[in-house]
């Protein structure tokens, strides 16, 4: 009897434990990403297919309020200015729920885009469907897609969010350079600290 009890307890514990093993949802490198149709800060709808002469897309989930995202604003502008003429435009997407994060409302996005003169699309993923499908968890979170929307790189922009001047490795730029040169991307996935995406409360 005692043995059965111990066994049962162990079995329950094991099952409980296994439930905590997370399943990484969303895209991995090599998956084909879906296109989307989202509202830009200019109140017009945009999709990837409609971007003329694109050889790929630098999709960046980002937002207004997060200090990590703010720290990267100027670097994201510079990335777009450097790579859009080569066929790799930045497409920024704000996935945050405006109730959970009031600073990340559409009006907040328009204001930021105006102030910083964003040269790239800054789209609003109001339903959060795109962030969920892509598997984005934080801001900023980068997905580099090729012309056929195959995911070629996921992760960080570079290795130092606080100080752009102290960056040692520009992971994203290396990936775009390799992609545009038709070479293998050496580092396909990196991690960075970011603000958790503020998901809408479902109840």
């Amino acid at each position: 009897m005692k043995k059965t009890l111990v066994f049962l307890t162990l079995a329950v514990a094991l099952v409980a434990w296994s439930f905590t093993t997370p399943v990484h949802e969303g895209y991995h490198v090599g998956d084909t990403a879906r296109d989307f149709n989202l509202m830009n800060v200019d109140k017009k709808m945009y999709d990837l297919a409609g971007i003329p002469d694109a050889k790929g897309y630098i999709v960046i989930f980002t937002c207004n309020h997060c200090p990590y995202a703010v720290a990267y604003q100027d670097r994201i502008i510079a990335l777009h200015n450097k790579y859009a003429p080569m066929g790799y435009p930045v497409v920024a997407i704000n996935p945050n729920d405006k109730t959970a994060s009031p600073g990340d409302s559409f009006e907040g996005m328009q204001k930021r885009a105006r102030e910083k003169k964003f040269p790239f699309l800054y789209l609003y993923d109001e339903t959060q469907e795109i962030a969920k499908t892509y598997g984005a968890t934080r801001t900023p979170h980068v997905y580099l897609l090729d012309k056929s929307r195959v995911v070629r790189y996921i992760g960080a922009i570079d290795d130092n969010h606080e100080d752009a001047g102290a960056v040692q490795e520009r992971y994203l730029e290396s990936a775009i350079d390799a992609l545009s040169a038709g070479q293998e991307i050496t580092l396909k996935e990196t991690k960075a600290i970011g603000c958790t995406i503020k998901w809408r409360k479902t109840q």
Partner: peptide, 20 residues
């Protein structure tokens, strides 16, 4: 530390980097 890519996995390979 400055290079999260080098220490996030030390905490847990499950961690994508979002806080908390």
């Amino acid at each position: 530390e400055t290079t999260p890519n080098k220490w996030i996995d030390l905490v847990s390979p499950e961690w994508t980097g979002a806080i908390p």
